[in-house]
Design a protein around this nucleic acid. Sequence first.
DNA 1: AGCTGCGCACAAC
DNA 2: GTTGTGCGCAGCT
Length: 362
Amino acid sequence: MSEPYREWILGSIDSLRSRKARPDLDRICRMVKRRHGSDWDRTRSELEKLIEEQTVLKVNYKGSVSYRNAAKVLRGRRRPEQSKCAVKQPSLADWSTGDSALGPVDEEDHMEDMEDEMSTTAGMDSSMDEEGDESSLDAMCAQSTADSGISMSPITSSNTSQPVPSPASSKNSPTHDALRQDTDSAYILPDHIQPAAQQDTGSVALVQQPAAICLSTLQAEDPLLSHCTVTPDEALKSDGGPPAVPDPVEEGDMCTKSTTEEEPVNNGGMNNGNDVVKREIEQDPLLWSVADVASYITSVGFPEQALAFRTQEIDGKSLLLMQRSDVLTGLSIRLGPALKIYENHVKVLQRSHFQDDSRLFS
DNA sequence: AGCTGCGCACAAC
DNA sequence: GTTGTGCGCAGCT
């Protein structure tokens, strides 16, 4: 999609929200048209694209369609109201793992945090079936995941993408969340990415999907991994940072702990997908575009947070200039992932980059 | 007429 | 009690 539209639409949504107006299609299109003169249909189609890539979330709130700026929803302390109505279909899960999105209190340790990050599955709602007048948009419903590290990433494939079911977190009883029925408001996936389990009754199964799903999702959603055929661990571990930098462990845990730790410089097992990642990593981060940065953040296991980087238009230069506080507070991402991203990736990239620079001058 | 601000009620947590 | 949401109304342009 064209960048201006992203800004325009997100800006309109934010603006509408700030004045307590429902950010629905009508208001969004009207505002974009008024502010920027954009054609209504064009705005609508661009909005559709944003929904598809989950920059915008389409929700059903209090019986009407509403749109959310995904980057801001991520920090939501809870999901929109739900469970007010009778359930027609089992929803997949709590989209926000509301409790865990509340703040840093549950970021006490890495394991807990990783469980936390994985504790959210795609929230979906069958209630959207009731809508009949927004044919195109209806097919493009965004899932929301405040905590899932994966499912917020852009969907690039219409037939391979799946929301990432997350391993259950005993702490937050995600199974219960998963079984909670989204009715009044929920984030919805397009049909083509609706997991099969949602179409039957397999909510529990979904929230406990094996790690392999993580890879398929990464492959489907992350261009850098789109060719990947390795295990999730390999995919995640091999790209943890620039060469010669120890790879953080936790990202590997995102999907499975089945592999042993490897040095990231050991690319012996890398496949094409990882080669892509490697090439990008080896490229000077200074040259990275916003998309490159987002892809990198996604590739190291933080697709949800990558969205924040994209939203804040962090390119390679910005990334190398980022300070700890910028990552921790400037991106509106949760403290746990933010700390990991900064300590394990941003800092590492910066160190590597500036070491290279200093070598040049010495 | 259309846009904006906001009090208020509601629901989730 | 806190927070997110948005209806509905009043004021503004």
